[in-house]
Design a protein around this nucleic acid. Structure first.
Lengths: 254, 254
DNA sequence: GCAAAAGTGTTAGCTATACACCCATGT
DNA sequence: ACATGGGTGTATAGCTAACACTTTTGC
């Protein structure tokens, strides 16, 4: 076994780890960042272990930074997955084969097939700013459309499902968008974000009225040109008011 | 060390455990069930370890049953506490002294002072039905008024605080009361429950109108007598409709 | 009879929703 | 010119919130 891997395993918690559902928004689609395990066609959520002297939250920030290059973004725990058997999507044999391909034969029975509990974190990131970077145990790190996510290793499909539910719920008592949209965006873009997350159509006029009523947006004098239609105004979030709204928990009725 | 204790420690997860904030409601006060550690004056939340072949949720149900005698009640995960140092309320020396008093000198450094992550569960139970039962490591198990909870071991004061926040939030999109009140109760009793949890006064007429509008209550022909005032009607929850409301997530506007 | 607490209905203001026409832009 | 999508206001219904007097009961 690689001595660096050995050291990593020895300096981290063994029974509990972290998995991150990282949401991005691009071209009107909600996306999620996935990793392909070395030498396999199997995908999973980005995850990692917690160093002994590090809090779970710190570990989540670190993992997110390692995979996306970003920090200081929306990141929060949403559920801890503690089932005794979290390997439901594949038979034990299939899974062992995958893990052997990635880690070598001396690894899986020692460390990975044992009981493991995972703390699920959810992150919202600006798609364009992400530099998707694979792990030491993965070949590829890329965005998948939420509706096209393949069958993932472990219980990671459940995790995405649960994260999405938590995100939808969040939406109803906190503003969302600051970490998912570029600095400047149009009202229709913001609306499409909401429509995508909630998976339902909203009325343009009512949506705009509602968003403006929260007093967290600043209308810019510029417009976005380039389409064969009337140029929409650009907006940006007033970060101070936005943070206050998150703190105080505005009631978003979308 | 007690061989049964040794066996328990060997057949459970070491790095992650469970703590339960068990809420009860009695005499117009919200209460929480606490344990006093053997040979000490130190209190903590009821908690326990997860058996290797058991899910975290199953462990929580088991722990709750062991401490209260109840099962099939409202119980849910609300947060996982993953700070690197969760012993903030006492100095290491004080804590070691407490743990030595309870477990003997050969225990704490071996098992307990190591890094530990705790999954926080919250339960709502019918006060009158609880048979509060101490642990093998505790002398006493009893209810404390939420406002009179002493400084607890580890980060358990934070846990109660966080559980209470989660409970308040829950209140706004799900009915609450089935597991906290006796089978039959009056409208003012239900209102006091809500007022206690939310820590604010509500209007009697509006509260009644709202509760009745959810169509989860059944008005009984009986009244509660015994006070020097007009006898209030008794109600009970229509369990079927109540469960449906929980499932569908009614918007409670209190 | 008096104190304590419960029963009950109406109104005003606000919020959510439904809905349609005109305008700017690129092809 | 035309297709595409954006800008904008009003009317209605439903919900929330404020509010007071009468009734029952025990002492």
């Amino acid at each position: 076994m690689d001595p660096r891997l050995k050291k990593y395993l020895e300096s981290t918690l063994k029974e509990v780890s972290i998995d991150c559902t990282i949401f991005g928004f691009h071209a009107g689609e909600l996306k999620v960042l996935l990793l392909r395990w070395k030498g396999t066609d199997s995908w999973s959520l980005p995850g990692g272990r917690i160093f002994l002297e590090e809090s779970a939250n710190e570990a989540a920030v670190r993992i997110l930074r390692e995979r996306t290059g970003l920090q200081e973004i929306f990141l929060q725990q949403f559920y801890t997955f503690g089932a005794a058997n979290r390997y439901k999507n594949f038979s034990p044999d299939e899974l062992i084969k995958t893990l052997e391909l990635t880690f070598g034969e001396d690894f899986f029975d020692e460390k990975l097939m044992k009981r493991n509990i995972s703390i699920g974190y959810m992150a919202l990131v600006e798609f364009e700013q992400v530099v998707a970077t694979p792990d030491w145990y993965t070949d590829e790190c890329r965005w998948w459309e939420i509706s096209a996510v393949p069958t993932l290793l472990f219980d990671h499909n459940d995790m995405i499902e649960t994260a999405l539910k938590a995100l939808r719920q969040q939406l109803s008592y906190q503003p969302i968008g600051y970490n998912l949209l570029p600095e400047k965006f149009t009202m229709p873009e913001l609306q499409r974000l909401y429509e995508t997350i909630l998976d339902k159509q909203l009325d343009r006029r009512n949506f705009q009225k509602l968003m403006l009523s929260y007093d967290i947006l600043e209308k810019l004098p510029e417009k976005r040109t380039g389409g064969a239609f009337k140029a929409p105004f650009l907006y940006k979030f007033d970060k101070e008011k936005y943070d206050r709204a998150i703190q105080e928990g505005i009631t978003f009725k979308v």
